[in-house]
Design a protein around this nucleic acid. Structure first.
Length: 464
RNA sequence: GGCGCCAUAGCCAAGUGGUAAGGCACGGGUCUGCAAAACCCUGAUCGGCGGUUCGAAUCCGCCUGGCGCCUCCA
């Protein structure tokens, strides 16, 4: 609201009520949704890490024009359509290692409270009904525009859509829409109809978070009109101000110089990334830029993140052996332990400052390097363990699982690859390097990277 | 037209008054049969101009370029 960072003071000490605008399940989610999901997941994880109890609500707006149109186009029931995409969303939530929300209310299951709220607004003079529609009377709410910092006259001047003549004022927006023939509808005091776009979030945040929320989140593209309208509805209805204490908006994903969006048709589906097993890399890519800033998406950037991730994974690998090198200047183990504490501190400092994940990640990369250096200097695994555990734990706070084994795509081929490597070991003992290198090179072309270590050859998947 | 944001090394990207994090890529080196991984070394004065200040990437003004919102959108 103030467009500034502010210290977090919650309604109830130690507890955070967080509401994040979810998706309208009429199509597959794209990476913009993935970014939002990841950003707020990290915020939630960090708050929990800091000891807060977080009630996290994410809604599904499972009834609106787009859903109806799409369902008609595919000649299926709207419910069938939304079920499908809700299931897909939950699946991708898992694939991106985002914690599930505490509740996932759906607009269609909250029609009662929505009607109640609309009625309340009518009763209070903030809304009026016309031909089965109900509109919010924007001019009745003095604070309108305070989030997006617009004033009413500017909005009028910039209006680009045709004005519905039945509205008292062009700025008024629909709380309830009368049903057209064939559309899903619910009975209401104004006749059969369905909720307008913004009201579901107001109703759901009220009923699941006791009226007022601490953190209300969503993409930056929701600031206006969605969140502005939510504020108007909720504050006018509840008589509580502010309805949300902290508004948190993630930056939008860009493809090249442009924003990625459905309307521009330049979107990348989350599925395409998840199906390739690059979910974790996507998370790292998102975290490498601040949540408020726009994220430039490129395939190259995704693969770069995948490589960065393997670097962290390697440092976190408990089975990585120290490679003894006769180096007099190996630092004592206590230095590494001290560095682990220092990393802990820097990590918290970064995240305490408006969830600066890029900074926090830099700390992890630094710690990883120190661990590798210690191994290179031949330090005993026991003396490295504390730092290693710190690395794994802190990465976990960001939702990065460094110990995850991601050879799944090659699971079926594993026995054969192992066999090839055994043969190759034999060849290497006989110094038949041409042939052993051929095996390594050919496997490499199949994205199987072979590495010879003092403990024997290992392999792993490597992309790009 | 209104509101607002951004411009940092080849790419991505932190840093909002005290002298430029991190990742990826490139080059050199150590290690290796050769590689890979890992480690070491190497690179930017922060779009331009002017101002404030002992001191600015960081504050102010102007300019240039790009983007977003004002209409469905995470």
């Amino acid at each position: 609201m103030t467009r500034r960072k502010e210290p977090l003071r919650t309604i109830e000490p130690g507890k955070v009520r967080m509401y994040v605008c979810g998706v309208t399940p009429y199509d597959s989610a794209h990476i913009g949704h993935g970014m939002s999901l990841t950003s707020f997941d990290v915020i939630r994880r960090y708050l929990e890490h800091r000891g807060y109890e977080v009630r996290h609500i994410q809604n599904f707006t499972d009834i609106d024009d787009k859903i109806i149109n799409r369902a008609n186009a595919e000649n299926i029931d709207p419910d069938a359509l939304t079920e499908k995409f809700i299931a897909e969303w939950l699946e991708q939530t898992r694939a991106l290692n985002a914690l599930p929300a505490s509740h996932y209310p759906r607009a269609t299951e909250e029609v009662g409270p929505i009607i109640e709220m609309v009625q309340g607004l009518v009763d209070r003079g903030h809304a009026y009904a016309v031909d089965g529609d109900v509109y919010f009377r924007v001019r009745s709410f003095p604070g309108y525009g305070k989030l997006s910092h617009r004033d009413l006259e500017d909005l009028l001047a910039g209006a680009r859509i045709e004005v519905d003549e039945r509205k008292e004022d062009p700025l008024d927006f629909a709380l309830w829409k009368a049903a057209k023939p064939g559309e899903p509808s619910w009975e209401s005091p104004w006749g059969p109809g369905r909720p307008g776009w913004h009201i579901e979030c107001s109703a759901m945040s009220s009923s699941y978070l006791d009226g007022q929320v601490d953190i209300h989140g969503g993409g930056a593209d929701l600031i206006f009109p969605h969140h502005e309208n939510e504020i108007a509805q909720s504050e006018a209805y509840l008589g509580v101000e502010p309805f949300a204490r902290y508004w948190v908006h993630n930056g939008l994903v860009r493809v090249g110089a442009d924003k990625m969006s459905k309307s521009l048709g330049n979107f990348v589906r989350l599925k395409e990334i998840v199906d390739r097993g690059l979910g974790p890399a996507f998370r790292l890519m998102v975290l490498q830029s601040h949540y408020r800033a726009p994220l430039t998406y490129t395939e190259e950037g995704l693969l770069a993140a995948e490589r960065g991730l393997s670097r962290l994974r390697a440092a976190a690998d408990p089975s990585a052996a120290a490679i003894a090198i006769e180096d007099g200047e190996s630092s004592p183990a206590s230095d590494l332990a001290a560095l682990a504490d220092e990393s802990q501190r820097r990590f918290h400092e970064a995240m305490d400052d408006d969830f600066n994940a890029p900074e926090a990640l830099a700390v992890l990369f630094d710690l990883g390097r120190a661990i590798n250096r210690a191994r290179g200097a031949g330090q005993a695994p026991e003396s490295i363990e504390a730092a290693r555990v710190t690395l794994v734990d802190l990465a976990g706070v960001l939702g990065l699982d460094l110990q995850e084994v991601s050879d799944a795509p090659f699971a079926d081929a594993a026995p054969f690859i192992d066999l090839l490597l055994r043969v190759r070991e034999e060849l290497r003992e006989r110094r038949e390097w041409a042939l052993s290198d051929l095996i390594r090179d050919e496997l490499g072309k199949l994205e199987v990277a072979v590495e010879d270590t003092p403990a024997g050859a290992t392999w792993s998947q490597r992309r790009g």
